[in-house]
């Protein structure tokens, strides 16, 4: 898959969170990784940004009501 898909204007920003950042998020919402929304390892964006299973992905979406809204998903292999 090519990097070009990241440039599509309908694709929100995906970034891999570092261990510490991920830990912070889990703590903030008081959740385990199993309780977070999932994203597949096969997902094109995940392939391009090179995330591994168990990584926490931060997606910054544009929102009509609050300008930007963060969303977190855990990479799973299934």
């Amino acid at each position: 898959m090519e990097e070009i898909i990241l440039k599509h204007r309908f694709l929100p920003k995906h970034e891999i969170l570092s261990e510490e950042e991920a830990e912070k998020i889990l703590k903030k919402y008081n959740v385990s990784k199993r309780q977070l929304p999932k994203i597949r390892l096969k997902d094109p964006v995940i392939k391009v940004i090179g995330a591994k299973e168990g990584d926490l992905i931060k997606i910054t979406r544009k929102s009509p009501t609050s300008k930007e809204s963060p969303y977190y998903r855990v990479v799973v292999d299934e």
Binding site: Y29, N30, V31, R34, Q35, L36, P37, R61, S63, T65, S66, S69, P70, Y71, Y72
Partner: peptide
């Protein structure tokens, strides 16, 4: 209470209700 939307398993559906918690 933390404005997240969750189901009965406490799995997060939205991190902020309606993205603006209004």
């Amino acid at each position: 209470y933390d404005y997240t939307v969750r189901d009965a398993n406490k799995t997060v559906i939205q991190f902020k209700y309606g993205e603006d918690s209004i």
